[in-house]
Simulated assay, not measured.
Amino acid sequence: MNKEKILSIRDLSISFMTTAGEANAIRGVKLDLYKGETLAIVGESGSGKSVTVKAIMGILSGNGSVKEGTIDFTYERNGETVHQDLLKLTKKEMRRRINGKRIAMVFQDPMTSLNPTMTIGKQIMEGMRCHYKTPKKEAYEKAVSLLSLVGITEPEKRMKCYPHQLSGGMRQRVVIAIALSCDPEVLICDEPTTALDVTIQAKILELIKEIQDRTGISVIYITHDLGVVAKVADYVAVMYAGKIVEKGLAEEVFYDPRHPYTWGLLSAMPDLNTSDEALYTIPGSPYNLMGKGKGDAFADRNAFALNIDYRMEPPMFQVTDTHYAATWLLHENAPEVGMPDALKNRISRMRKEA
């Protein structure tokens, strides 16, 4: 079955000018998002996850510049299929044609996403009124139904509330309602549950999954929480130092990881059944994005690093039709190195639980 590609990122490179020099934040990222599917981008802080999606939205900060690459977005307009390179649009064109209307984003902290001086109702109606010139009565009715859809009780009453009158979980639901108000094709969730407690987190994740099943929307999740990924993702991309180091179907990356960095991330997940006294941590410090050093960015932190890792950057090696990893350990001449036994045991437990 041929899947319909909605977003295609190719060779994306982004750098930022800082007082210390040029930081190469994104280095040749290549990613695809398919219609109705969920892509999760995972990695530690500073790996380039948020910068990648900010480039999709056209909201990079002033000191950031796209060095090369394309972001091809495919959508329907007046019955015709349009292919648009988002990097060729101006910020004004992005705001008018894409942001909120076709690609919407849910940010980490709902309080900073909402206007404290406007009622919830007005904020949900604003996008519909602006993009589609929806009549006020129709926009009001849709806003009420959206509040109901995201699980807010007494939606008509909440329409008159201000953000400070709602709890954190309710505010995040409102942000999701605003994101969905113009029926976008793509929803980007940048760590949407970070500021919420664990029980609310689970409810928000379930809510987004339900909405996706109902509307067929494509979702990109940005997270460093692999537990979240296991619940929601169809496809996973693991980022380190501005590059994709492993990508594949969620079950491939979870149950058959091939990159030592992915091994580290999975080993560092809290586990109730482990006999280890201390939580595993990946040794060393994150890669310096100012550096233009040779070799693999992960080499200094990699217990399984080969001599070639310090001299040449690894290409993407194919594991299956859908699974790829950028590690020299997959080269035909590399020594046989398997994942650590502790992680093997953990993965077999994860399989049983699943």
Rank of each mutant, 00 (worst) to 15 (best):
V174W: 04
K137L: 05
T153N: 13
K136I: 07
I152V: 11
L147P: 11
E126N: 09
P155K: 07
G121I: 07
E156T: 09
M128E: 00
G168P: 02
I120E: 05
E126R: 08
Q123A: 04
E138G: 09
K136P: 02
G169K: 03
D109E: 15
K133D: 10
P155S: 12
G168N: 05
H164T: 04
I120K: 05
M125A: 05
M125Y: 11
A143M: 00
M125W: 09
D109L: 05
L114V: 08
G127A: 15
I124D: 13
H164A: 06
E138A: 15
E141V: 00
P135H: 10
G169L: 02
G151H: 08
T134W: 10
I124G: 12
R129N: 03
N115C: 08
E141W: 00
K157V: 13
L149F: 02
K160Q: 14
L149W: 02
P116D: 13
R173G: 09
P163G: 06
K160D: 15
V174E: 10
Y140C: 03
M111W: 06
Q123H: 04
M170W: 09
L166A: 00
T119K: 13
H164Y: 07
H164W: 06
D109C: 01
V150E: 13
S167H: 14
Q108E: 11
E156G: 05
S113Q: 00
H164N: 11
Q123M: 05
R129T: 07
Y140D: 03
V144A: 15
M170F: 08
P155L: 08
R171K: 13
K137W: 01
E154D: 15
G168F: 05
K160S: 15
S145T: 13
T119G: 08
F107M: 14
R158N: 00
V150K: 08
L149M: 14
R129V: 01
R173W: 10
K122I: 00
